[in-house]
Each structure stands twice: as C-alpha cells, then as structure tokens.
Amino acid sequence: MPTLVISTALDTMATPYHHRQVADGIPGARFAELASGHLPFAEAPGEWLGLIRAFLDAQA
C-alpha cells in the first residue's frame, strides 16, 4: 500500500527520529519532512496539504 510518512521537524512529542523509524518499517514508504511542530495542519497547512496532494497525485 502506498504510504507517506510526514515528519514534523520541530515536533518535540514525536520526533523526526520516530517518524523515520515508522517510515523505515513500511516497505516502500515515502518520507517527507516539514518544518513544523506537532500540528502541521494548523502550523503549516499549505505545505502539509501540498505534500499530501503531491503524494496522492503520484499514485494516480
């Protein structure tokens, strides 16, 4: 199943290290990093949505 793991680089609750572990545990997962804290949809909504849209567009 195509999977996108978005790492929030400024997140102190779930760190980029943990995000990378998740991505590495899913065969073929795509990893993307966003300069945001724990709530990317509130802190960087345009960038967050852009990553998701680009990923979904690539699946079509």
Score class of each variant (00 low, 15 high):
23 A>S: 10
22 V>D: 01
27 P>L: 03
8 T>N: 15
27 P>E: 07
18 H>A: 12
59 Q>R: 13
22 V>C: 01
29 A>P: 00
24 D>C: 01
26 I>H: 03
59 Q>E: 15
3 T>N: 04
27 P>R: 06
21 Q>H: 03
47 E>N: 10
21 Q>P: 00
24 D>V: 00
32 A>Q: 14
3 T>M: 02
3 T>S: 05
29 A>S: 08
18 H>Q: 14
50 G>H: 08
37 G>Q: 10
44 A>D: 07
31 F>T: 08
46 G>H: 14
46 G>N: 13
3 T>D: 00
4 L>I: 09
3 T>V: 14
40 P>F: 07
54 A>H: 11
9 A>D: 13
16 P>L: 09
28 G>D: 05
12 T>L: 14
36 S>I: 10
3 T>Q: 01
13 M>K: 10
56 L>Y: 09
16 P>M: 09
13 M>P: 00
26 I>K: 03
23 A>R: 06
33 E>Y: 00
1 M>Y: 06
33 E>F: 00
33 E>S: 09
7 S>K: 06
21 Q>E: 12
10 L>M: 12
13 M>D: 10
26 I>Y: 04
59 Q>M: 13
49 L>K: 11
10 L>T: 05
8 T>I: 04
57 D>T: 07
32 A>F: 08
22 V>T: 07
42 A>Y: 12
28 G>K: 04
19 H>W: 02
5 V>Q: 01
18 H>V: 08
12 T>M: 12
7 S>A: 14
48 W>R: 05
59 Q>S: 08
53 R>E: 15
3 T>R: 03
56 L>M: 13
18 H>Y: 04
29 A>C: 03
41 F>H: 11
31 F>P: 06
52 I>S: 05
44 A>P: 03
15 T>N: 07
19 H>D: 10
17 Y>S: 11
1 M>A: 13
53 R>G: 05
12 T>F: 06
14 A>L: 13
20 R>Q: 15
5 V>K: 00
27 P>W: 00
59 Q>H: 07
33 E>A: 06
34 L>P: 01
23 A>T: 03
9 A>H: 03
19 H>Y: 08
39 L>C: 09
3 T>P: 02
34 L>R: 05
49 L>P: 01
27 P>S: 06
30 R>F: 01
1 M>G: 10
40 P>S: 04
31 F>C: 10
22 V>S: 00
51 L>Q: 13
54 A>R: 14
19 H>S: 15
58 A>V: 04
6 I>H: 04
43 E>Y: 05
20 R>T: 07
7 S>D: 05
51 L>V: 06
39 L>T: 11
49 L>W: 09
53 R>P: 00
36 S>H: 08
36 S>E: 09
52 I>P: 03
30 R>G: 02
4 L>E: 06
58 A>P: 03
33 E>C: 00
24 D>I: 02
49 L>A: 15
34 L>K: 04
58 A>T: 11
21 Q>A: 08
44 A>R: 15
19 H>A: 15
44 A>K: 14
4 L>W: 08
19 H>T: 07
8 T>K: 07
50 G>R: 09
27 P>H: 02
17 Y>D: 11
44 A>W: 02
8 T>S: 15
10 L>S: 12
59 Q>K: 06
15 T>P: 07
